[in-house]
Design a protein around this nucleic acid. Structure first.
Ligand SMILES: [Zn+2]
Ligand SMILES: [Zn+2]
Ligand SMILES: [Zn+2]
Ligand SMILES: [Zn+2]
Lengths: 151, 151
DNA sequence: ATAAACCCTGAAGCTTACTATAGGGTCAAG
DNA sequence: CTTGACCCTATAGTAAGCTTCAGGGTTTAT
């Protein structure tokens, strides 16, 4: 009924086509993300179009920031679409978006602190004896803990 | 000549003051970042003001995104200020800034891809059979490698 | 027939920054 | 005199996502 499988790919071919390593593919398999549809007589993994599509899904999701663990869950949703709701799926992307926003916010904070430091330094050929970068880093650090309690 | 050391801190005291764990401190030592000025008779690490300041430098640098390895290099610059130039130090922060900018750019790209996905989904109570998120992830992935060369 | 280029498994190693565990010494209070 | 809170060393484990290695089969070209 379904279009017949024209031909299978061996692991090296699939890896080359996907631009990842053979070892990564085997690793994904070991993590339960994707396995070959069948094996050849000599035990070689053989991948069908279905597997290729699944790998596409995985790499797609990876590209937008999902971890392999999360992708495994996504693959579960994908496989049993009828047992899950759009809401569930959307919640998943929503959570990920917030996570990424948090990471961005942290990095932006770091960057601005770094830029202040950077811009204060003359960057000249003189020795760093009075370098403002080193001085600022050295300045009393506000240990964010209680200051009291000397014995 | 120099102001005398009023008293030393034991590792637990320094850790509490800095808001990090004793184990982290010992780890930093094992990585060659900071070591106690001396040891008490029973082998306890004793930290002077100098060490406290150095730890401040470390935590400061950590906060703005330097790795321990990089901090080790920074400590080297700090220690031998007279053998290095402002330029060198400034190059270091410059490189770090570019690194962070790259990370931010990557995350922003991820986020916008995710947001497109997210916004296209209705998020309703129906089953995910036609969920646009899953469909888009499943769509033919452009493997960024040569497409030719069929046997 | 033999070397190159594939494929297999299972286990170990890498990176970063710690945390935990095992086994044991030290010190002050009750 | 023992309990608890410290301190010590050395080693192993954690997370994530691979990579490398050891040891061994298969296929294809020369
Ligand atoms: Zn300068
Ligand atoms: Zn400077
Ligand atoms: Zn929907
Ligand atoms: Zn949906």
């Amino acid at each position: 009924m379904v279009a017949m499988q024209t031909h299978y790919l061996k692991i090296g071919q699939l890896a080359a086509r996907a631009g990842i390593s053979v070892e990564s593919l085997r690793y994904y398999e070991s993590e339960g993300l994707i396995s070959a549809n069948c094996r050849s007589e000599n035990g070689y993994r053989l991948y069908s179009d279905e597997s290729i599509q699944k790998l596409g899904f995985i790499l797609h999701a990876k590209k937008i920031g999902f971890s392999l663990k999360e992708i495994k869950r996504l693959l579960g949703l994908r496989l049993n679409r009828d047992q899950h709701t759009c809401e569930e799926v959307k919640d998943y992307t929503g959570a990920k978006i917030r996570e990424i926003e948090q990471k961005i916010a942290d990095l932006v904070k770091m960057k601005s602190a770094l830029v202040s430091l950077h811009e204060a330094c003359c960057g000249g050929n003189e020795t760093a004896d009075n370098c403002s970068i080193l001085q600022t880093l050295e300045a009393p650090f506000t240990f964010e803990k209680i200051e009291s309690g000397d014995s």
